[in-house]
Design a protein around this nucleic acid. Structure first.
Lengths: 210, 210
DNA sequence: GCGTTTGTTGTATGACCGTTCAACAGGAAA
DNA sequence: TTTCCTGTTGAACGGTCATACAACAAACGC
């Protein structure tokens, strides 16, 4: 709430600036962040220009200016939501080995309701929004490829034969399902249960993960 | 569009009725059905009084009258969405054995995008709506219990030891994930892939399903 | 037929929605 | 200091939203 400073008669000629001027990139990033926050907290129905701009501390015209409209921001938010996942998969050059990957997925930082409700909001929209569906395909492919790679490498190291593409697709679906349960039944699902579920799927095919 | 019949001067005294009068139960059922259709087609953002009533061929006041408001109808829709699943599980008295259950889940009638987008819309809302969350808990428990029962019976018949509750929770999460993939990546997921995924999870613990 | 019950209608209302756009102003370059 | 570019503002607009409610009428018992 930046109060307009009433300048005394002969006082400083430089009044408090009415707004902060950012580069287009920075402002876009702030709006995306606000969009994600709003989606997490209130789902897709809370994803409105008013709420997002208020959250970002910007005026209502900016979403149109930087993203061409609400849909543009939503697409940007979707990309931003995928970023941490992909960063984890090939975080810092070398791809993460499967056991560490599974550990990482179930840390308190990742397997958190507050982080995951975001996905529920997006999924519901992707299902009925062809533009977002295309966006999804692109990201999903990178995700799947990395997962196949992790499984293939692990199986090879253990000297096991495994249908890595099939296991990867199954694992991805299982993870999505576990995230879903955590979001809609918070008391029931837990990281420990999630870990056990993943082990129940993978260990018969790949041997012990730990 | 029932046209108002302009009665000729001395003609029949019984004019075409302006609307059909239903019992409260029947009208409620029609509104729920329309709500489900709208959710499936357009997600939660399309779940509006106007669209639902237009779909149901009723006037806008009726949702308030029969359900106390939009939220009441949404809760009723959620229950109605669960009904086919639970009916399948103990359909007609005797609970369905696991292999038939899996077959049934992947029939064209069940594993259809049009049927499943409904769930995506609901999930996104459950995650941020405590009332729906409570409703969910109730139905999920019945679902889980039936699934544990099916797995336990199958394992026993095969003379296998298995952690049925854990497998049931994992299976439910996996199914949810497969439905999700079918909805948001229609070209990628298929009933066949889904079947294989379920087999990859269950068969190492329970032996061949077929 | 007649009155009563009860489901139904549709408008009024006020809040909120997304988009547009002309005016504005921060801030760097000249 | 002045100029200019460009990010920013906020009001205006037309549309849609959920709800409330008073009037209405279909169908049933009598």
């Amino acid at each position: 709430m930046p109060e307009v400073k009433v300048a005394a008669k002969g006082a400083a000629k430089v009044a408090e600036p009415r707004f902060k001027r950012l580069t287009a990139t920075d402002r876009a990033a702030e709006l995306v962040e606000a969009g994600l926050a709003v989606l997490s907290a209130g789902g897709i129905t809370a994803f409105t220009i008013d709420k997002i701009c208020k959250k970002a501390g910007a005026s209502r015209g900016l979403i149109g200016h930087h993203f061409g409209g609400k849909d543009g921001l939503l697409a940007a938010c979707y990309s931003a939501a995928y970023a941490p996942l992909l960063r984890m998969l090939h975080g810092g050059g070398a791809p993460l080995p499967l056991p560490q990957l599974m550990d990482e997925l179930f840390t308190d930082r990742q397997f958190r309701r507050e982080s995951l409700t975001l996905w529920l909001a997006l999924w519901g929209e992707i299902a009925v929004n062809p533009t977002l569906q295309a966006e999804h395909q692109r990201h999903y492919q990178a995700y799947e490829t990395a997962m196949i790679r992790a499984i293939t490498d692990f199986a090879q190291a253990k000297g096991r034969q495994a249908d890595a593409p099939m296991l990867a697709a199954t694992l991805i679906a299982l993870l999505d399902g576990l995230w879903l349960e955590l979001c809609i039944a918070p008391g029931v699902m837990s990281a420990q249960k999630g870990r056990r579920a993943v082990a129940a799927l993978l260990e018969p095919h790949l041997g012990p993960l730990a």
